[in-house]
Design a protein around this nucleic acid. Sequence first.
DNA 1: CGGGAAAAGCTTTTT
DNA 2: GCTTTTCCCG
Length: 711
Amino acid sequence: MILNSLNEAQQEAVRAPLGHQLVLAGAGSGKTRVLTHRIAWLVEVEKISPFNILAVTFTNKAANEMRTRIESILHVSAKNMWIGTFHGLSHRFLRAHWQEAGLPQLFQILDSDDQFRMVRRVINALNLDEDKFPPKEAQWFINAQKEEGLEPHEVKPRDLNGQMFLKIYAAYKEACQRAGVIDFTDLLLKTYKTLLSNAELRAHYQSRFRCLLVDEFQDTNTLQYAWLKLFAGEENSVMIVGDDDQSIYGWRGAKIENLHRFSKDYPNAKVIRLEQNYRSTGTILKAANTLIAQNSGRMGKNLWTDGKDGDKITVYSGFNETDEAFFIVNRIRELHQTDYALKDMAILYRSNAQSRVLEEALMQFGIPYRVYGGLRYFDRQEIRDALAYLRIIANRADDPAFERIINTPTRGIGDRTITSIREHAKAANISLWDALEQLLKQNFFAARAETALLSFVNLISTMSDRALMLELDKKVEYMLNASGLIEHYRKEKGEKGLTRLENLEELVNAAHQFSQEGVEDDMPPLAAFLAYAALESGSEQAEAYTDCVQLMTLHSAKGLEFPVVFLAGCEEELFPHYLCMHDPKALEEERRLCYVGMTRAMRKLYMSYAEVRRMHGKEVYHRPSRFLHEIPVELIDEIRFRAKVSRPQPITNSYTPQSQGKFRIGQEVVHRIFGQGTVLETEGDGEDMKVKVRFAKVGTKVLIASYLEGK
DNA sequence: CGGGAAAAGCTTTTT
DNA sequence: GCTTTTCCCG
């Protein structure tokens, strides 16, 4: 039976009778297992049809993983099950009910960058001063209102400033409507509002979803909670899984109180605690428990393991940040030579800026590493350009896309010309595209601008005509060439242009793969692909398997685990961050962040700090983080090197990982065009050897070895 | 339109 | 301080 592998608390959660359950799942307590087994149980034992189940997560990654795992446990297809992110499921809902939601059938989704541009344009159109009303703040304001479930007419401005922001919100909303686009938060808000105002639809969905499950519930915001309650209605069972101690997204609207609110709203909800930890040593858990016990208002939870206590936690006091980095790198080297693969070790830090010193140290030692959390595929400039062309093909009214490509690649359409199009669009309350066509008819433009504009209009029309006949991937390929994007980026010199071309080529592959996998919705393939690109920002390319040390922020480490964890920069002002220090609530969130970081470690945990650190250009002295003092001293092994800063030894003799052929990881090399660099990875041998090199001037690039010279 | 100089950030991030 | 974005001029 499916329960064999579960402990008692886990089984209790899986077998719970229909009704409401709150599962408090500590770090490493098998939360995903419980969720997936619960769903399997519902289907196989409670005989609930997959059709009647709704499971919500926050990231696509989590949703995909859940679906895969369920399908491997279950003997029934999970196809009919609604598993996805809040945004993904809302999108599905709105595609099915666009009429009820008052949307055009082929509405497009704005990502945050599009949203930002749109907000800025609205501010300018209202003749407001960007310095007085920064687009960033306006964007934040708009999203905050939406996350409280408020449309412009429902917002009660607090002061004069708030009134202006409200005005911007209202104008932004109109602009979105005109363009037939909706932003991320709109996906949820429109779903919520539609369901709220349409009793028939509400009844339909409430009778459909008999069982609802939510993962990472501590990260839900007000709107998501309301969304969930509306889908759940009075009758259906809801299981929420979360951990108040791992709530680290309060700053972006997550309401930890939703956990308490759930117990109030559903007083019969059964509370189940998963406290047995399968990840970390006893020592790590004891330390983490003691630390988090400092927080107030917890729901209460104490992690335990029946495993060994393991090693003490190593605390290293570095002289400065470079010394700290060298300590970490030295340890990594030692551990790599004895017991651990590089990919089993992670360096976690509070803020991205910290990665540089660490990277430099790793490079000097020739240790391959990977930094997580960079620019994702669909966020890249060239990809966004390409998608904008596709969007304009799909929907001429898509103003943000129009703005993006009207002069990209440059075709001699200047700012003044665009401004007059904008003004006409605003005055006539029509899309930029329609405004352009009208103005052309009126012979509004000077001859030179007119020629350029006509060729743009022709280009888009020809493109969409020709594209009609083509398969999705051919469509993308055709567009890339016809638009001149390929040519444009080919001209971009150096490394960047080449990478961009590769990325654009990859888009054709992505489109091909997408159409192969088949779309479930009855949407045109192009529209479906665009929605996919907007919602699935594309995990940073799944690079071929390489054994690399992993670098990431504490936030992005959530949900992951590593045998060895280095928590760098444990200093006051940095961690806890100085912007959080005077707000008790924010400080508790920092502490939870520390708790999250510590509980990522399976066997070895290192925490380090620097006495002097260069920050914002100044040398600053910080005390060790208060979090270090909140760990029982008997669990800590403290190392201090006071004598002098430990410099790295030249890597030539000390460390030669996987060195084959002519080049060695860590070796300094010279390229005729790209200049000096360091070898990061090697692949193959002899003439065919491929070498990944980080160049001082142009970034990282994979090259054939014969183009390089050793130094 | 593109390159260089000046100016502005500078916590954490997913959709 | 360092990096990224914006701005201005040839």
